[in-house]
Design a protein around this nucleic acid. Sequence first.
DNA 1: AGAAATTTGTCCGTATGTATC
DNA 2: AGATACATACGGACAAATTTC
Lengths: 140, 140
Amino acid sequence: MPTPHYGQPRYRAIAAELRQRIESGAIPPGTLLPTEGALTAEFRASRGTIRQAIAVLREEGLASTEHGRGTYAMPHARLPESGKPSDLETRKREVAANEELASLFGVEAGETLIEHESITRRDGRTEIVVRSYRIHQSRQ
Amino acid sequence: MPTPHYGQPRYRAIAAELRQRIESGAIPPGTLLPTEGALTAEFRASRGTIRQAIAVLREEGLASTEHGRGTYAMPHARLPESGKPSDLETRKREVAANEELASLFGVEAGETLIEHESITRRDGRTEIVVRSYRIHQSRQ
DNA sequence: AGAAATTTGTCCGTATGTATC
DNA sequence: AGATACATACGGACAAATTTC
C-alpha cells in the first residue's frame, strides 16, 4: 500500500477518533482502550501506526499505557456537560486533607480540599471510582 | 540482528549519548545534530530507533526538529520555566477498601483495590491529584 | 506454582510522501 | 530540477510484563 497522507496523516485521524470516544464517554476514564491488535483490525492500519496514534493521546494526557496490560483512558478535563453517559455519576464535596494529601499540596493537615468524584457503573456494578483533589481557593 | 535490550533499550542509550553531547557543548545550542542517516551509520541502528531516541530529546526540550531541515540542539534551561510544562507523575498501588469504597463496590471492607494516582504539578506546586479505584480481580 | 495466552515494548528493513536546500 | 532530510506507513520478529488457566 502506498503512503498518501494528504492533509491529515493516518495516525492523527485515528488519534482523533479515539479522542472523541474518550471525551464523549464511550470509553470512560479508567477503563481500557481496545488492544493494539483490535485497533489494527478495526482501522486496517499497521501496529506501528496504531501505536503512533496512542502516543498522541498519551502526550495529551488522555491515555496511559501499561506494559502487558493495556492502555487506560485517563480522566480528562470535563467541560460543562448537560447530557451525561447514563452510567456516570458525579458529585463534588469538601474534605479535610489528611497527612498524605496535605503533604502533596504543601498545606497543613485539615486544610479544606475540593474533591470531585465520578463513579462509573456497568451492568449495575461499580467499575471505577475516580476522585480528584484540588486546593480550595486557588487562583486559576 | 535479534532484539536483546537487556537493561537499557537501545534508543535510550543513544538518547543518553546525544544528550551528553548537547549538555557538554559538543553540539552547541542552535546547531544541527547529525542527520538521521548519519546517526544510523554511527550507531549502526535502524532509522526508526534513531528517531525514537531523538523523540526522547524533544520531549525533554533538548532538541527541536524541522521537516526537511534537521534537528537543532536547544539551549538547555534546567531551571523551572514559568507556566506551561505541567509535570505529571503517576503511580499504581494496592490499597485496602475502607467502608465507603467497599460499599460503592459492593465488597467487604478491607478488600484489595487497585489505586491509580496522578499528580499534576505546575510551577512547582501541586495543582491536582487524581485517584481512580477499581476492583483487583478480573476485568470487564 | 507453573505453563500458556495475551498485550505492550523494542528493533529491523523497506518504501514512499513532503519539505527544504 | 535535483539532492538532501525528515514524516508516514507497512510488515515481521523477538523481548518483557501481566493475566489466565
